[in-house]
């Protein structure tokens, strides 16, 4: 395992997903990897793809150039950042003319892409480099009393070509496998592969919240202790906006929402503080108490 990685935070995490970042960095440390944000990383480009695909490619390429210059592989915490950076890395590696064209534009900001660095989602890296067995070996606080609902989201898996078909988006299992390694149960629920609706929040809030509502209704029916996910924007929909989703549904939700490395971290002996458990918007006191007891 290479021990140092360029940690890509994107726009949302530095402000609204610090518990995700903190727990991921701590998990990296437990397995001998240093995850370091690069100061020159900026937006991945994904948010403006509807306006300008070329602009998206330029922003993605700029970030890849920053990592290439540092000689580091990229680990992204946000699934949309992971997919747009992986797409760009793939296109720029395959197409010499495109790379030349992009480099002409990047010259304006004194950046250059020669060989795009490898890009992976943090959870993909964890699954491939540590794996469920590696997690299981280091569990000190088994989570056998807990039941979790996994939300894979879209861009952790898709477009599958950008991730070299690392996992079949029609039958994803990696996140569940990692969670089960802690001894926890992973519940089945209908429509578990569906989208959170996050990309539409600024376009049509009612429709966006309806997408989240459909999914959270299914999750609620499975009665898990928490929803576990790997994307800060899915968390914006399910955690930050849960009250609005519930109001639109005219239903009670009260679902704690946690990021995968927070849960894994607790099983691996990190403290509630180390994994930022109190930063969830939808308070999870019951869960915090239960975790304290499990320890």
């Amino acid at each position: 395992m290479e021990n140092k990685y360029a940690l890509f935070l994107g726009c949302t995490i530095p402000l609204r997903g610090r518990q995700y970042e903190k727990s991921a960095v701590e998990i990296g440390r437990l397995f001998g990897a240093e995850l370091e944000p690069q100061q020159d990383f900026a937006c991945c480009g994904f948010p403006i793809k509807s306006a300008t695909r070329e602009g998206t490619l330029l922003l993605a390429a700029r970030n890849l150039a920053v990592a290439e210059e540092a000689g580091l592989e990229v680990l992204a915490l946000c699934s949309s950042c992971a997919s747009v950076l992986a797409e760009a890395a793939e296109e720029l590696a395959e197409d010499d003319d495109l790379r030349k064209k992009v480099n002409e534009k990047l010259a304006k900001v004194k950046r250059k892409i020669e060989k795009p660095p490898r890009v992976r989602h943090f959870a993909r890296w964890l699954y491939e480099e540590v794996g469920p067995e590696g997690i299981a070996e280091k569990v000190v606080a088994p989570l056998g009393d807990f039941r979790f609902a996994v939300h894979y989201g879209c861009h952790y898996l898709k477009p599958s070509w950008a991730f070299h078909d690392a996992e079949d988006p029609e039958a994803p299992h990696s996140l569940g496998d990692l969670l089960r390694a802690t001894g926890a149960d992973v519940v089945d629920y209908a429509e578990y592969k569906k989208c959170c609706g996050g990309a539409l929040l600024g376009i049509d809030a009612e429709l966006s919240l309806a997408l989240a509502g459909e999914k959270l209704t299914r999750v609620k029916a499975a009665a898990p202790d928490a929803v576990v996910l790997v994307c800060p924007f899915c968390a914006v929909m399910y955690d930050d906006n849960q009250k609005k989703v519930a109001a639109q549904l005219e239903a009670e939700l009260d679902l704690p929402v946690l990021f995968l490395p927070q849960v894994l971290g607790l099983a691996l002996g990190l403290s509630a503080k180390d994994v930022g458990l109190k930063l969830a918007k939808n308070k999870c006191e019951k869960l915090i108490a239960a975790f304290a007891e499990a320890k």
Binding site: P37, D40, A42
Partner: peptide, 25 residues
């Protein structure tokens, strides 16, 4: 400040390269 308190790296608050790249787009 909140980031530092949690033991997370301080980050630059702006990146003018983005505007330079997007101005022609």
């Amino acid at each position: 400040k909140k980031r530092l308190k949690m033991g997370l790296a301080e980050l630059k608050t702006t990146c003018d390269e983005v505007a330079k790249l997007l101005d022609d787009e």
